[in-house]
Structure formats: structure tokens, C-alpha cells
Amino acid sequence: MGCDGGTIPKRHELVKGPKKVEKVDKNAELAAKWKYCALSQEKLRRPIVSCELGRLYNKDAIIEYLLDKSAERPNTEVVSHIRGIKDIKELNLTDNPEWEGERRSTKGDRYEDIHCGMFICPVVGLEMNGKHRFCYLQTCGCVFSDRALKEVKAEICHKCGEPFKDDTIVVLNGTKEEVEKLREKMEDKRAKSKSNKKKSKKNKAAETVCAASESKEDTQSPPVDVAGRSSVEKGSESNQSVEDGPSGSSTSSKASATKRSIQVTDGKSEVFKSLFTTHSSAKRSKDQTSNWVTHTPYHF
């Protein structure tokens, strides 16, 4: 059985089978992640920032999104976790000397290497084109390849010298599993910060209450009696009197001991006692004493 012109059709031309799944070009996918902004889909240009999940953005696009979140923009679900400017970090990138960018001829007569990246690792020299794993430090924002961090192990940044920890390393454009781990880490960090803020607020409230109660106690003075003594002083005097005894014998004995004359003390010579005015030789009779005459120089 033939068709017009004597052609014989084949089975795949007559029977429709299932559609083949379209495969995404890996080169196009890598270029979309490493050369274009994840929010505005424009080419990446300095200043370039990254979120806690490791996506790359133009800083201008993020600022416009934060200023007006109600505006209709594509890919808004990509930045739904960004609450403010503190949730992003500006990256300190190293330019690739072989990258020509817009200086390249646009006539189409030259070969364009799509795997050539705009930036490189300052330690190893690998290009940041998606074929190699890259990370950035949340403390300073410097970007390095994962190979450089593993081979040259240090606790300070290789570029700026600022100290960092392993918890502050974020993978750029990681796999789905790595993004999920970064999301869990981000949520735990935000939960801890919220709990710390609540504790600090409670401590501040308790401190203010204590300060207010202390100020009230200071302003309230103790009652004062007619003699001008406070009740606290009177209470201390009464306690002291109770300890000394009801008759106050201890105080009188102390006073008598201190007022004892030097003339009565034993063991002192008569010459020593005559030095004091309490000695009998120092006393005068009435005949020896003179009469003092007082007069005023004023005459009225």
C-alpha cells in the first residue's frame, strides 16, 4: 500500500508515540546561574550580592525589590526569604584577566568561549563558570573555590586576612540538597536571634522594675521624732541599751575609769604629780587669789 508518488510510509510517521522529554542544555543552565541575576534575569554587574542560600543578584535589583515589594516582578519567590538589606552580603570578587566582556567583537567572526567566567579564584585561579564549586565567606564576602579552602586550610581569609569559621562558609549556586541544608541553617539562626532578643527584652524590663523599686525606697525616708532622730537610730540605741543592761552600769564604769584623777593613781612619784594642776601645790588660798576688776572703756 502506497501513497501518492509511490512512497511507502513508515510506522513512526503514521503512529504517534509519547512525547520525548525536553532536556535542558547544561551550558545554558550554567550561564543563567553564573552570569545573570536570579531576580531580574539581567547580566551580573558590580556590585554583586548573595543571599544566605548562595544565589547571585545585582544589588540594584534587590534594593528595588525591598523598596517596593508590592510591584509585580518575575521570580519573586526566589527572594521571598530576603527580609532586609542585612540578609544579603556584597561579594568581593576577583576579575578574570581573560574575560573581555563587552569589548569582544560583536560581528560574529570570532569564537566565543561560553565557559570563560567573569571572575576567578584568587588562590587557585579556577574560573567561576559553574564547573567548579565556589563559596563565599559571610564575614568579609570574599569568594574562593572549594578546592582552595580545602587545600590551603587556614582560619583567616586568604585575601583580606579577616578570621572566619566553618559555619560562615556559604556555597554559591549549590545543589538542591545543599540549598536545603543552607535553608535549615538560616531558619535555625533566625530562631536563635529571636529567642535572644526576647531574653534581652525580659532582662531590660526586669532591670527597669528593680531600678524603679530602688528609687522608691530611696525617696521614702524613715520617720523622725521630736528630737530629730530617726526611728532606725532609736532602734539601734535601744538595742545597745539592752545589751549593756537596764541600769547602764557598763557605761558609767567606763566613764569613771576614764575620769580617774592622776593624783589617785598608784606608782607615780610626787614630782610627776606636781606637774599637773590637780596637785595641792598648785591650789591657792583665798588670800593669794586676786580680785579681778572689769570696766568698760566706754563712758556714757
Rank of each mutant, 00 (worst) to 15 (best):
L56R: 02
I48C: 03
L53C: 00
V79I: 15
T94E: 08
E42H: 13
E42I: 02
I88A: 10
G84H: 11
I63C: 03
L39I: 01
D95W: 05
N92A: 05
A61F: 00
L91R: 06
N92G: 05
Y36F: 14
N96C: 05
E77C: 09
K43L: 14
S40F: 06
W34H: 08
N96L: 07
P74A: 15
P74Q: 13
L66D: 10
K86E: 15
A71P: 00
V79Q: 11
K89Q: 10
R73C: 12
R73W: 10
I48Y: 07
G84K: 06
V78S: 14
K59P: 00
K69D: 01
I48Q: 06
T94H: 05
E42C: 11
I63E: 09
H81W: 13
R46E: 06
L91P: 12
V49G: 01
D95Y: 09
N58G: 07
N92K: 08
C51F: 02
Y57S: 07
E72S: 13
D95L: 08
D68W: 00
I85D: 14
I82W: 07
S70K: 09
I63Y: 00
L93I: 14
K89F: 12
L56P: 03
W34P: 02
K86S: 15
L56V: 03
L93K: 07
C51G: 11
V49A: 02
S80I: 10
L93V: 10
E42A: 13
K86Y: 13
T94G: 10
I88G: 13
N92Q: 06
N58M: 00
E72K: 13
L39S: 05
Y65F: 12
K86P: 10
E77L: 09
N58L: 01
E64R: 08
K43Q: 14
K43W: 11
C37H: 05
L67W: 01
D87A: 14
N96I: 03
E90V: 10
P47M: 07
L93Q: 09
V49I: 04
H81D: 15
Y57A: 06
T76E: 14
N58T: 04
I62N: 03
I82A: 13
W34A: 11
V79K: 12
H81P: 06
E72N: 12
D95Q: 09
R73V: 12
I63D: 08
N92R: 04
D60E: 13
K43M: 15
I85K: 15
P47T: 01
G84E: 13
L67G: 06
R45L: 06
P74G: 13
L67E: 12
D95E: 08
S50A: 09
E64V: 00
L66I: 05
N96T: 09
G84Q: 07
A38V: 02
W34I: 02
W34S: 04
G54E: 05
A71G: 02
S80L: 10
I48P: 05
V49C: 00
A71M: 08
P74K: 13
K86H: 15
V78A: 14
T94S: 13
T94L: 04
D87T: 14
K86C: 15
E90W: 03
K43V: 14
E42M: 12
L39R: 04
D87F: 11
R83E: 15
L53Y: 02
N92D: 07
L53H: 01
A61K: 01
L39F: 11
L66T: 09
R46N: 08
A61M: 01
T76G: 12
I48G: 08
S70M: 07
N96K: 10
